[in-house]
Amino acid sequence: MSDRLVDILVTSFMRILIPGIKVTIPLTLLSFLLSLVIGLLLALVQVANIKGLKEFARFYIWIFRGTPLIVQLFIIFFGLPSIGITLDAFPAAVLAFGMNLGAYNAEVFRSAIMAIPKGQLEAAYMIGLNYPQAMARVILPQSFPVAFPNLFNNLISLLKDTSLAASITVIELFTSAQQIAARTYEPFALYCEAALIYLIFSTALTWLQNWIEKKLVWKSGENDKDKDADCGCGRNKAMVG
């Protein structure tokens, strides 16, 4: 490798990494947050079998899963202005990624909810809970660990897909690499460098996933605190086990 190339790679590293941290990561996290909200709502109206909303959810998923992400991105950023809605590039990207992934996460949540044994809901009913209480207290807390690996899979996928935002003028990780490559005529080296930075980000996410998954097992711990200990109802702490 020539000294010049080494020099370009070293100086460009930070110039690609910084937009990565400042733009790609917030774009990924905000879009993912939006997709979680959309996905959960779309899943809930389906499993609760709410007339009208259920059909809307199926329609939404049909549209957003059935058309290319980049087309959705273009419709939101370039298309909406012609009907009077103009968005900046960054919020347009968040909206497009969030709405698109929302359709996928809806299916992740729905399958996770369906995976909870029917007996759990029946037991919740028999102790006197109503449907919303049973969902909030029993079914959703149990669905979350089931959904988690697939949600995280989608998050890692989204991290890389955000490079599509380059096509609607968002200056993120990939755009920065593109600009430097155009200036230095070293596309091979610079795109490989961009790939490396994406790889670093997704590796960090994978570690995070493994760490969180270990925490998602229902297991009693040594230092669990007793929430109602200060009730003073005549039972000493030793009896709590």
Binding site: R137, V138, V240
Partner: peptide, 28 residues
């Protein structure tokens, strides 16, 4: 069909506190 996301204690408390709005200390 015990709630697998709750401890033994919370499994019993749930019907009292969430469904019947019993005071936590009384429920305990």
């Amino acid at each position: 069909n015990l709630f697998s996301n709750m401890t033994v204690y919370d499994n019993v408390m749930e019907g009292l506190v969430t469904a019947r709005k019993m005071d936590r200390c009384e429920a305990r």
